Amino acid sequence: MDETGKELVLALYDYQEKSPREVTMKKGDILTLLNSTNKDWWKVEVNDRQGFVPAAYVKKL
Score class of each variant (00 low, 15 high):
M1N: 12
M1A: 14
D2F: 10
D2G: 15
E3D: 13
E3W: 08
E3G: 14
T4Q: 13
T4S: 14
G5N: 12
K6E: 09
K6C: 12
K6H: 13
K6D: 08
E7D: 10
L8A: 06
L8Y: 15
V9N: 01
L10N: 04
L10H: 04
A11M: 02
A11Q: 01
A11E: 01
A11D: 00
A11P: 00
Y13V: 11
Y13M: 11
D14I: 02
Y15V: 01
Y15W: 11
Q16L: 13
Q16M: 12
K18I: 07
K18G: 08
K18Q: 14
S19H: 11
S19I: 04
P20S: 11
P20H: 11
P20I: 09
P20K: 09
E22H: 06
E22S: 06
T24S: 15
M25C: 06
K26Y: 11
K26R: 12
K26V: 10
K26D: 04
K27H: 05
K27D: 02
K27N: 04
G28K: 02
D29M: 13
D29Q: 15
D29P: 00
D29C: 07
I30D: 00
I30G: 01
I30R: 05
I30T: 06
L31K: 00
T32M: 10
T32A: 11
T32C: 10
T32P: 15
T32G: 08
L33A: 02
L34Y: 04
L34H: 05
N35T: 07
N35C: 10
T37N: 13
N38I: 05
N38G: 10
K39M: 10
K39E: 10
D40V: 14
D40I: 14
W41F: 06
W42P: 01
W42Q: 01
K43C: 12
K43S: 07
K43L: 15
V44S: 00
V44T: 01
V44M: 01
E45A: 11
E45M: 11
V46I: 15
V46Q: 15
N47H: 12
R49W: 06
Q50F: 08
G51K: 02
G51N: 01
G51Q: 02
F52N: 04
V53M: 01
V53D: 01
P54G: 02
P54F: 03
A55S: 14
A55G: 04
A56W: 08
Y57V: 05
Y57F: 13
V58C: 12
K59R: 13
K59L: 14
K59C: 14
K60V: 12
K60F: 08
L61C: 11
L61V: 12
